[in-house]
Design a protein around this nucleic acid. Structure first.
Lengths: 231, 231
DNA sequence: TCTTGATTTAAACGAACGTTTGATTAAAAT
DNA sequence: ATTTTAATCAAACGTTCGTTTAAATCAAGA
């Protein structure tokens, strides 16, 4: 079964955008690689920007639907007593599942998405934000129930931190690779990455809350040590 | 005192690159804004890429020297018993200090740097990595002493998470802005941001270590709750 | 079979890009 | 005063870009 031109263009564009970025990938680059005519992009999508928009819709909408679905499963199962760990999982998993899909291009899209988070192009940001809004709001409420000690502001910032870390991980640009000590670490081992990021995020989300952020030098009072236990 | 052409170009390029990205900022855009001749970029720097390279060197080298300097001060003061919080501060502060410099363009550069972390352009990545290498290695050793319970692998990943979160925060693209509940949060309040990110990172860095990352459903055993205490 | 609408195609459009050139000006050295 | 070097300038170079056009091809429906 041969996919139609529209899907071929989307798949090829996804691949090349993820590899090279939006501006460094021309329509000629895409159409040559996809073995379709140059004009077919503008015929089927209208413009390069519209192609990019469709590309994000195709992936983000199902991904966030999956997030909400997982959240609803948790709510049905545990009511208001969802474990923070599972809540974070419900948010991480759909993205990481895409990340494992090296066959149909999901992994490429996730890289692209992560990079777009820190891109300057504002129009695309607005579009992505709108695609994210429903899922983010649902999860904010869920986090608020699981972490009742956090003020709305604190919760906002911590979700901000969580989303930011995930964005960086999705982008897959490993700035730490320069450290010789860890050449053995496989940054492509998604499952290990998820497990470790989850622990990090769980701890971060339930970090102690401080009132006055005016400490600039040694003050151990605000630092609370967590025992490091295996298993 | 009038700055010379070279610095004017660097400052203007920094500003425009931060606003619009590399590919969306042309040399004509820069030279027009800087009120210098178009050819002067290639005369003084050789090429657009070389200009970008110089731009990063100008900021990153002093910033990382400052990081190492702060680390050495801590080592001199506390030997091997540096508080994790202060270690993270020593790494965060020089970047955030630049972020506060809205006068001389440091804030713009930090945004640019954060975005570059997740950019696809590989040549620039390698250059940045080389500029970072010495500071990263020093801090890795320091973290290893402060967090002796972490294996080298674990430490590597957690520093990866820390650097990633900071990169996202530096980029300043607030994907969470869509949440209506927190319109009051000022994302430009750098000091509050630092304080909150510090707490988050301190908790994340000393999260419990798990051996087997095979839990996909409800298992509260690995989740360890930290009391949330003000002050 | 003829027609109609949807797709594909080759070719061209104008605009914007990074870079280069050769002349011109400014400053410094002899 | 003359030469030499550095810097600036307007203009053009050759490419590449996203987009458009108009003809050609294809697939049914009448």
């Amino acid at each position: 079964m041969a996919k139609d031109t529209k899907d071929i263009i989307l798949d090829t564009a996804e691949k090349l955008f993820a590899k090279q970025g939006f501006n460094n990938t021309s329509l000629r680059n895409i159409t040559t690689e996809a073995d379709v005519n140059l004009a077919s992009v503008n015929y089927h999508f209208g413009s390069k920007d519209a192609l990019i928009q469709k590309l994000f819709e195709r992936r983000i909408i199902p991904m966030n639907e999956q997030r909400i679905s997982k959240l609803e499963q948790l709510e049905q199962k545990y009511g208001d007593h969802i474990a923070l760990e599972n809540l974070i999982d419900a948010f991480m998993e759909p993205a990481m599942e895409l990340s494992r899909d090296t066959q149909k291009g999901g992994a490429l899209f996730i890289k692209l998405l992560g990079r777009t988070y820190t891109d300057p192009s504002s129009e695309l940001h607005d579009a992505i934000r709108q695609l994210y809004a429903p899922a983010i709001e649902r999860f904010r409420d869920a986090f608020a129930r699981v972490l009742p000690e956090l003020t709305p502001d604190e919760l906002y910032w911590r979700m901000h931190f969580m989303v930011g870390l995930l964005a960086y991980l999705m982008a897959g640009t490993d700035m730490m690779r320069l450290i010789a000590s860890c050449k053995l670490c496989d940054p492509l081992d998604t499952d290990a990455l998820i497990a470790r990021a989850r622990m990090f995020l769980v701890a971060g989300m339930q970090a102690p809350v401080i009132e006055q952020p005016d400490n600039t030098d040694q003050n151990e009072s605000t630092t609370r040590r967590v025992d490091s236990v295996a298993g």
